[in-house]
Amino acid sequence: MNYFQIMMEACNDIKLGFDEDKYNRFMKYKDMLKLWNNKINLTAIVEDRDIIKKHFVDCMEIFKFSPMKDALDIIDIGTGAGFPGIPIKIMDDRKNITLLDSLNKRINFLNQVVLELKLNKIVCIHGRAEDFSRKIEYREKYDIAVSRAVANLTVLSEFCIPYVKVGGYFIAMKGPAVDEEVKESKKAIDILGGKIESIINVENCELNHNLVVIKKIKRTPKTYPRRSGTVAKKPLK
């Protein structure tokens, strides 16, 4: 199967450039993902074709939100194996990327990926989202916060919106059934300083996902996010 062609077609669809250098970086990333997955739990998706389509192409689809193309400072919260942060960086080397994850073994993997792929202007941080957004060097400093983490949108919003500067965006990469989740999260998003701007359907031959786009319209109150453990146990209502 011609993986280069699959990725090229995906890029053409969202009007992004693609070349051999980007492809080679993705292939090295894929090989590292499979190798490290034998030692630590990074992904349940292990076949080459599935990694290409269900991870790489799916992450690239975030560029369907047009402001992503011009945004320079981006944080990926709960990045796991580096999705979508590393694919974003491979596709646009101008961007300053912060990858945040609560498991140090994943950060060790990501640091090795950054080294071997020779990626610049990318930082991997071990920590909890609700702790780092209280630090002045991270709070309301980013053009865009992204998350592909598996968590309810209300919870994700409290984790992510505090990182976004006023006028910026939080993009949650969610599954096909988001309507009820979006409805239930609106009050929390408002409290945190955000407003749901759009839901962009992302559909390829393998997946049907949605980008929930939340615009930061006012500063997040200093009381948020709440202390570690409270956000998930007692979601805002």
Rank of each mutant, 00 (worst) to 15 (best):
E61C: 09
A44V: 04
K34N: 07
K34M: 12
N104P: 01
E47G: 09
I88F: 01
F65G: 05
N37I: 10
P84F: 00
A81I: 08
D50I: 07
F63I: 08
R49C: 04
N104E: 12
T98P: 01
I51K: 11
L103R: 01
I86A: 04
M91P: 13
P67G: 07
C59V: 04
M91S: 14
I90R: 00
R49G: 02
M68S: 08
K28D: 10
K89V: 00
A71R: 13
D50N: 08
Y29L: 11
D48L: 10
R49N: 10
L33E: 12
N41Q: 08
L99F: 02
P87G: 05
I40P: 06
P84E: 01
A44E: 05
L42I: 11
E47S: 14
P87E: 03
L100H: 04
T43Q: 06
A81L: 06
G80A: 07
A81N: 04
I74L: 10
A81G: 15
D73A: 09
D50Q: 11
D31H: 10
M68C: 10
F83S: 06
E61A: 12
K53L: 13
K53W: 12
G78C: 09
I62N: 12
I52K: 06
N41F: 03
A81F: 11
E61M: 13
M68V: 13
I86S: 06
R106G: 03
R25E: 14
K64D: 10
S66Q: 15
L100P: 06
L99D: 01
D31E: 15
D92L: 04
D76N: 07
G78Q: 02
I75C: 13
K34S: 09
E61P: 01
I77V: 13
Y29E: 05
L100E: 02
K53P: 01
E61Q: 15
R49T: 06
P87H: 00
S66E: 15
I88N: 11
D73V: 01
K64I: 07
I40Q: 05
L100A: 02
T98I: 07
S102T: 03
T79H: 08
I40V: 11
D101S: 06
S66Y: 15
D58Y: 12
G85V: 00
D31V: 02
V57P: 00
C59T: 03
D70Y: 12
G80K: 01
S66R: 14
D93A: 13
T98G: 01
I40N: 04
D93W: 08
A71Y: 15
M32C: 05
R94K: 14
D101M: 04
L99I: 01
K54V: 09
K28I: 09
N38A: 05
I62L: 15
K53V: 12
C59Y: 00
D50A: 11
P84N: 06
I45E: 07
Y29Q: 07
I86W: 03
L35I: 05
F83K: 02
A71H: 13
F83T: 02
M60D: 05
G82W: 08
M32D: 09
P67F: 12
D70T: 13
D92G: 09
N38T: 08
V46R: 15
L33R: 05
D93Y: 11
L103G: 00
D92N: 15
K53A: 11
